[in-house]
């Protein structure tokens, strides 16, 4: 199955990427080739095979409910591209 340009455009919004017309064309072509290749896995009989999300057989790792020092606010905000003395700033998101 190959991807359409419209699908790629839709995915670019989901991925919050803005692609130029030329990039969309190239991306459609390249993703198409790769997707076609990975569809090789469709031929494997996976009946009854448990998906393997973790390779290490580790479970139940917890920390105790203890408060540890937070970052000083100026240090937390220092690297933000747009901030005031208290908060990160972004274009208005109300109603988004």
């Amino acid at each position: 199955m190959s991807l359409t340009r419209e699908e790629v455009e839709k995915v670019s919004l989901l991925a919050r990427l803005r692609l130029s017309e030329a990039e969309l064309d190239q991306m459609t072509r390249q993703l198409g080739t790769i997707v076609e290749y990975v569809e090789l896995i469709a031929e494997v009989d996976t009946t009854g095979v448990e998906p393997m999300a973790h390779v290490a057989d580790v479970a139940n790792v917890f920390r105790d409910d203890e408060v540890r020092p937070s970052l000083p606010r100026d240090e937390a905000l220092r690297g933000a591209p747009n901030h005031d003395d208290e908060c990160y700033r972004v274009p208005a998101v109300m109603g988004d």
Binding site: V38, I41, A42, V44, T46, V49, E50, P51, M52, A53
Partner: peptide, 9 residues
Amino acid sequence: KRALQVRRL
């Protein structure tokens, strides 16, 4: 999901 299954194999 299928990739994770083949991963187990």
